[in-house]
Design a protein around this nucleic acid. Structure first.
Lengths: 333, 333
DNA sequence: TTGTAGGCGTTATCAT
DNA sequence: ATGATAACGCCTACAA
């Protein structure tokens, strides 16, 4: 691989000049510039990005940590981040935390030690306090789908409480009064906020929260299955079910069908996140849209703006969920 | 950030010695080693991986190119690759090619210019000839889910033809004779091979291929919808349908249901890939398992072995699909 | 076992 | 506008 040195030789100019045309910041006369350019193509020269990084103290890479690489939710998030960053010539180093506190810490360490210029992370096991500590480090870091006071400008977050509220309200407006709730793990801030929204909607409609209609799931298909089974086994009555995410909704629907419950006539179900497959589920899932792809774009723009000074667009830190009406909720009289 | 130089000073040893304990390859006396270790923690020292890369001519990073970051198929693939590589302390730079020839070329260029030690790519728009050229470059490259003669040892591939064969055979064995086929884009090698397998199964059972029962889809939900609509509109008769991937199967099933066709009584459907959501579809989708996660692991092991000399496990270049029997295929008499 | 010194391929600060 | 030259932080013969 040709080096800048060989280029300078062939072009008959100095190292510095070649560097200048590579970065085309300082002015170089058109004539020398052309000579250099010619020499570069002739040698098939490609700047060594590692050397550039060392000399400039900028790796042009941003680290991304997500819980899982598979999973529709993270897929959309990464797609948003990558598209934005790639267009700016930055590269994305991706690693996983598996929703586990230790692994998330490790993942972040890993990325920092890799000299990332910035980090975009979606963590679920780390405490607010730890995140605050992280912001004090020398590597800029931003948190996806998380809101922590005092470091608001590091957070791109969704109003999960509003989402939970909208879901339950939709059911209420369809005439449902007996509403079961399958929550996500309450250690996860998202899950907690969604549940709070549910309670708020109930309260607003003068309905007391009934603990026998509550089940804490795992945000996976199994959580939905276990939850519905739990309700059914206990013989509680309900005409509708809100699940704190689409996976659990899907699981619950499968279980319902296997037990002779017809959807949505016997049971209305509403999900959360609007993952791609939610419209493939039968009946098509009514759910809450989580604009996570857009949030990924915004997170990337934030680092482009603050770290790379590449844009001065306004940053939207907070996003609002919306209801997606499909076929899994029916009216009751 | 502390440098190796400061560590050597504090420990009262030379630069080289510190380097030795970092890489702990050469022998260092226990006493000096401890002094160095102490100095490192005291200074909170972390090796600068960029400088390491420059000096050692090894970036410890492998580039991964996939068509999309969202999508269950790629998710599983990336998960396999990342898990394996991360465990070996290598990092993964991910970018996308969007199934487009130009973008795939660009993506690969991008990764190479980033000094990746190796590349693992899943491309759909590039020709075999181009891939062969790529293997001649200085960056080792391996191709996921692709088989190209003369560079077999760069390919981790699935026997797609066998998969296509198994799918149709399954239908045949359930008594179906009128089998419609929604193919993937025939420019994609995978899609082509799957279709070939279909034809082979037909032939083996003495059934002539009927061109009116063939439709070329786009590997997306819409392909399934368009395909089924096409067959229905043309009034051809068939009792079963094989789709070249699960997304199209899902689309077709949705369309069928919307047009009063009950599944699987009126129509049996079989998919391909066994993406996670295939079991959430109703009825649960019978499909062909594509062990893409495992293949990702294997690709990573291949680079660990050949590029980093980290293992000497045997490499399995070729994988076989298997049938997953679920509920979307019914018997016919 | 440990130290010395040159080199990895750029960028950036001075001069000129 | 261009050229020397010193960093950047580490690795690795080679020497001791």
């Amino acid at each position: 691989m040709a080096t800048i040195y060989e280029v300078s030789n062939l072009a008959g100019v100095s190292l510095a000049t070649v560097s200048r045309v590579i970065n085309n910041n300082a002015r170089v006369s058109d004539k020398t510039k052309q000579k250099v350019l010619d020499a570069m193509v002739q040698l098939g020269y490609r700047p060594n990005s590692i050397a550039q990084s060392l000399a400039s103290n900028c790796s042009n890479s941003v680290g991304v940590l997500v819980s899982e690489l598979n999973g529709a939710f993270f897929g959309q998030m990464m797609a948003g981040i990558e598209a934005e960053l790639r267009a700016a010539g930055k590269h994305v180093i991706i690693t996983t935390g598996h929703s586990d506190e230790e692994k998330e810490k490790e993942g972040i360490e890993f990325l920092i030690s890799r000299n990332c210029d910035a980090l975009i992370v979606h963590v679920e096991g780390l405490s607010d306090e730890y995140l605050i500590e992280l912001t004090k480090g020398s590597t800029p870091i931003i948190f996806m789908s998380r809101f922590v006071e005092t470091i608001e400008n590091h957070c791109i977050s969704l109003d999960n409480e509003l989402g939970g509220y909208l879901a339950t309200k939709n059911l209420l407006e369809h005439g449902h009064k007996d509403i079961a709730y399958i929550a996500g793990p309450q250690v996860k801030p998202d899950a907690k906020a969604r549940f709070t929204g549910h309670q708020k909607a109930l309260q607003e409609h003068g309905i007391a929260f009934d603990n026998t209609l509550y089940f804490e799931g795992d945000f996976c298909e199994t959580g939905g299955i276990d939850g519905l089974k739990y309700f059914l086994d206990n013989g509680v009555t309900f005409t509708s079910l809100v699940c704190a995410n689409d996976e659990m909704a899907s699981g619950a629907m499968t279980y319902a069908r296997e037990h002779g419950i017809s959807l949505p006539q016997d049971l209305s179900v509403i999900g959360f996140d609007n993952i791609i497959f939610s419209r493939h589920i039968y009946p098509k899932l009514t759910t809450i849209d989580n604009p996570v792809g857009e949030m990924g774009h915004m997170a990337a723009k934030l680092v482009l703006k603050n770290v790379y000074k590449k844009t001065d667009e306004d940053i939207q830190y907070s996003f609002e969920p919306t209801i997606i009406d499909r076929d899994s909720v029916s009216k009751i009289n």
